[in-house]
Design a protein around this nucleic acid. Structure first.
Length: 305
DNA sequence: TTCCAGGCTTAAC
DNA sequence: GTTAAGCATGGA
């Protein structure tokens, strides 16, 4: 099952919704050369998963413009259940099940979003479907510049994640929470995490590994706000992190990280202010984006990076 | 050296 | 409930 079979197996294709531009999404994926969890090129993105302890190297392309093609580059052909998991993951990764028409109607008359919606038409919120990865990424990104956050993620992934070398590139999967069961805080500090980040990552890993926290449970709560309150109970997770996770992992288009420095700088830059807007001013602006605050934020970020 | 970066916690009012 | 101060790290 490992060896003699045709490579580049077509696993499945996903139909694409209106207002989806794979090239524009690739631009987003390609925003940092320090990204370690996938590799992009002109035509697509290649990513490694370790699913049920089976290697799974896949590639996404849109050869015809109408369907997202998922091919298997390396690893055994996944079971029907694994393929179903992968298809769901990819739909969440690119937010394929969302109707963006209302957002574009709203953006059309918005002075800040109008040009961005034009320029990045077809961009969807690129999600982080795995809760542990999403929380870690947010925790690592607290109060540090983005380049350093990527470095921290790379260090963590290289130290604890599974990897696969294929055609001259090394691909990494983000480690699962169970991997950190016996890891001490000092080990993570050696990877340049602060004590606070190290402690929070370990606390979250233990919580998720024990079943005390899961994406499913958060989504089953009565509202996104209830999910946010649950996350805020964890020490080291504040408003920014919980809103960020709502936005990137919990499919909540109303999440709005008002404290986000990138958001503040984007609004400052686009509106020509000589200072960063206050949270109150951002909330005022966001009234025009009601229901789509997360998309507004995601597009505003594109003005910066 | 100082200031900033896709913040959080604690203590004080 | 809201605000101020302290924290910790790397990069410009």
């Amino acid at each position: 099952m490992w060896g003699r079979r045709a490579m580049n197996d077509l696993l499945f294709e996903l139909p694409l919704p209106e207002f989806f531009d794979f090239g524009v999404c690739l631009e987003y994926l390609n925003r940092s050369p320090l990204e370690c969890l996938y590799r992009t090129d002109q035509e697509g993105v290649t990513r490694y998963f370790n699913l049920d302890n089976q290697p799974l190297l896949i590639r996404l392309t849109v050869p015809e413009g109408s369907k997202l093609r998922v091919t298997l580059l390396h690893g055994p052909i996944p079971s029907p259940e694994a393929a179903e998991w992968l298809a769901r993951y990819i739909r969440e990764w690119f937010d394929l099940d969302r109707d963006l028409a209302p957002f574009y109607r709203l953006a059309q008359t918005d002075p800040l979003l109008g040009p961005l919606a034009e320029q990045h038409r077809g961009l969807r919120i690129v999600g982080i479907p795995d809760l542990f990865e999403a929380l870690c990424w947010a925790i690592l990104g607290q109060q540090v510049n983005l380049a350093f956050a990527y470095r921290l993620k790379q260090q963590l992934t290289a130290a604890y994640g599974e990897s696969l070398e294929w055609e001259g590139y090394v691909y990494y999967a983000f480690p699962g929470p169970e991997v950190f069961a016996d890891v001490q805080q000092e080990e993570l500090c050696a990877l340049q995490l602060t004590r606070s980040k190290a402690r929070t990552v370990l606390d979250v890993a233990a919580l998720i590994a024990s079943g005390g926290l899961s994406r499913e449970a958060l989504l089953a709560l009565a509202s996104p706000d209830a999910a946010e309150q649950r996350l805020l109970q964890i020490r080291g997770i504040g408003p920014w992190t919980s809103q960020y996770v709502r936005m990137r992992c919990l499919d909540d288009t109303t999440a709005f990280p008002v404290g986000d420095v990138g958001l503040q700088n984007a609004v400052k830059f686009l509106s020509g202010m000589d200072r960063k807007p206050t949270p109150a001013e951002l909330l005022k602006l966001a009234e025009a984006w009601r229901g789509w605050e997360a998309y507004a934020t995601f597009y505003l970020w594109r003005a910066l990076y």
